[in-house]
Amino acid sequence: MIKSRLFNSVIRTLTGIGHRVTERIWRLGAGARLFFLAIIYSGESFKRFQLTMREVYATGVMSLLIIIVSAFFVGMVLALQGYNILQKYGSSDAIGVFVSLTLVRELGPVVTALLFAGRAGTAITAEIGLMKTTEQLSAMEMMAVNPIARVIAPRFWAGVISMPILAALFSMVGILGGYLVAVPLIGVDDGAFWSQMQANVDVRLDIMNGLIKSVVFGVVCTMIALFQGYDAPPTAEGVSRATTRTVVISSLAVLGIDFVLTAFMLAS
């Protein structure tokens, strides 16, 4: 009797795990399918570029405030921490290089992507989820208008366009914040700050690698947000869960992919 109960319990647990695993794999496949469909039906997004530009405004321009304010504080903190470490080794003049490389290589793309997921990603998921809940996507389909071409693809390209621009702005504002702390506040030499940065930041190795990261994060974060909204159950709870999943999955994906990309970039 006890053996039989134990056996049933093990079977139930294994079935549950199997169900969860197959569901995850199914969702991954469905997400990949949506990604390819968004690429295939991208013609409209470029033919009627104003559709994409409207979304660039909603996702990119509307995220500017949070990006700029965060970048400013991140840059200032970097300068404070950097100076604290570098002065121990008598290299406080290298503060400019420290701030700029940290921002351009890592924090610019990564923090921008995390903030983008929280600000624009959630908005995209909620919007698409609500469009589904209120039958707007069905209405489009019934009008013989493909919702992937009209709704998904423009938002996808808007995210891909916005992310590198936002990351570049993040790095620029961050460096400015670092400068304000390092030079006027701490008293690091103005010329040393900029000249060391100019001498040590490489366009191909540092800036291009940062740019590649932010484009990849743009694709990943936007696609996760779009899929979660498109796949959300058409209920209030479904949309709310999808919005949460967007932030969690995007954040984890960004951090994981950042490690892989950094490893490849440093190795090469």
């Binding site: 469009m131 209120t134 039958e135 707007q136 069905s138 209405a139 019934m142 009008m143 013989a144 493909n146």
Partner: peptide, 19 residues
């Protein structure tokens, strides 16, 4: 299907207007 749907119009239960 899209060709057939161009001959159809549909009024959804709650209107489904684009907000």
């Amino acid at each position: 299907i899209f060709k057939l749907r161009r001959k159809m119009g549909m009024l959804f239960q709650h209107g489904a207007l684009f907000t």
